[in-house]
Amino acid sequence: MVLLVRVLEKSALGRAWIAVREEPLAAATIGISATKVRLSAFTIAAAIAGLAGCLSVASIGTTGDPNAFGFNRSVAILCAVIIGGLGSIPGTLVGVTILFGFDIVVIPSVDSWMQRIQGQVFDVSLFTLGSWRLALVGIALIVVMRFRPIGLIPSRRFAAEFQESKQ
């Protein structure tokens, strides 16, 4: 899938997509039909999202749970993309790894460690990191936005655009 997107980005169609996004007027004057190009982008994006949906259903085993597609999940995915870097494939992969790896690996292990410590001291567990999960994600997002607004591994293109908008 990553390869497919990579190939598309480098293809004639990919360049036409970027051209239409950058400067629709100039794109039209070189004969790119914005409607067709946008439609193709939309269709391919929807197909990829559909495939992802199939895979996610296969992994969670049901489509009946409304919480599986809740607001939190959408925001988490958006956060992963922003932290990693918009418009960059490795950036997105890194963002997802950090955010969901944090969720699945780091938080449970830290929690169990904290419970052990607190159990020795207070006899009850008072504080779990798990309940502060969303706050941590929020803080990470703020830190990234403040110090590296283009994401951890931005694409060259977005870096250029960012420079341009700053000027």
Binding site: I18, E23, L25, A26, R157
Partner: peptide, 27 residues
Amino acid sequence: VARTFRSPRNFPAMTVFENILVTVEQG
């Protein structure tokens, strides 16, 4: 019919090479 604009309307976040390549392809 090809035209250029007074305020240059190139594709800013594409390299010079890509700018021309995309146009060549459309041609």
